[in-house]
């Protein structure tokens, strides 16, 4: 499957999904004529077109490579890991990926995007006969402005409720200013422990930016937060304007009675994700990931499925 995984990496790195392009265009049209914000989004759109036509990375920071592989029982995870690593090395050689994995202690770049913890791979066994791999390339600038709140938080008056979640998200987007390559997409993970809360936030980023949360309470909060984050006026690149975020996506997990985490995963406008389905030796590529499909299920079923 190495060849199919290599093509998946190329697509993720070079082709921005159509749903993201659409909301960037909407944002561009909402910015004032002749403003730096509008001109910035014009450049963004031209850049995406150029990247796609020339098979070059949309952004030089090809990010953390996050894989979600759904596989049948008959497939070995060790073999899949080997194929993903081989494809990653090849993709680095072909300049679809920048050498982006650095030894945190020695400072040495491994040169091929592999090493302890790189790439990030999550496996899920399922009852289907096909294999589906989702890939996201998440840039470091946006990762650096991501945040985690432990509620209650006195500084922003955030308690352990929906209002507390709302305050945390607005505060995190404010703190990010223009440093995360906005307009961003905001993934929110409520509950869990410190690690799984942020994993939930990142999984939210696989959703289509224009989908609707099947949970009416969360759907309402997503809509409110989209409007309120845009009221901040930070705008594209932090140049000012009405397009500060492109979407807000919220998911929740059970927590301990002692803990209440709100994790905010900021994703830059270069929201690079792609998916491949492999059945009977044939690969079919898609811009809609398996993670996004979950959101067509009713809320209760989706929660049970995790």
């Amino acid at each position: 499957m190495q060849k199919d995984f290599l093509e998946l990496i190329r697509r993720a790195s070079c082709d921005l999904p159509a749903d993201v392009i659409r909301v960037i265009k909407q944002g561009r049209n909402a910015e004032a004529k002749g403003s730096p914000s509008r001109s910035a989004l014009d450049d963004v759109l031209e850049n995406c077109d150029l990247a796609s036509r020339t098979s070059r990375p949309i952004c030089q920071d090809t990010g953390t490579n996050i894989w979600y592989v759904h596989h049948p029982r008959s497939v070995s995870q060790a073999a899949l890991t080997r194929d993903i690593i081989a494809a990653t090395r090849k993709a680095t050689k072909l300049a679809y990926l920048r050498p982006n994995a650095v030894d945190s202690i020695t400072g040495k770049n491994s040169g091929d995007n592999t090493g302890p913890g790189a790439p990030v791979i999550h496996f899920h066994e399922w009852s289907k006969k096909s294999l589906v791999a989702d890939l996201m390339l998440k840039g470091g600038g946006s990762e650096n402005v991501s945040a985690q709140y432990s509620l209650p938080n006195g500084a922003i008056g955030a308690g352990r409720d929906l209002e507390g979640i709302r305050r945390s998200v607005v505060d995190a987007v404010f703190n990010a200013q223009g440093k995360g390559c906005g307009p961003g997409i905001i993934g929110v993970g409520v509950g869990g422990d410190r690690a799984t809360s942020m994993i939930e936030a990142k999984e939210q980023l696989f959703r289509l930016v224009n989908d609707k949360n099947p949970d009416p309470v969360l759907a309402k909060l997503e809509k409110t937060l989209l409007a309120q984050c845009n009221e901040l006026g930070i705008g594209p690149m932090g140049f000012g304007g009405s397009t500060t975020v492109l979407g807000v996506k919220i998911g929740a997990r059970h927590r301990l009675p002692a803990s209440f985490f709100v994790s905010i995963a900021y994703l830059c406008w270069a929201a690079r994700r792609a998916s491949v389905s492999i059945a009977g030796g044939r690969a079919t590529y898609s811009q809609i990931s398996q993670q996004a499909m979950k959101y067509k299920l009713p809320a209760v079923a989706a929660r049970k499925g995790r």
Binding site: D43, V44, P57, M237
Partner: peptide, 13 residues
Amino acid sequence: LHAIGGAAPLLAD
């Protein structure tokens, strides 16, 4: 000088 974040092939050219 602020360049456009993420506009990588455009600036590379």
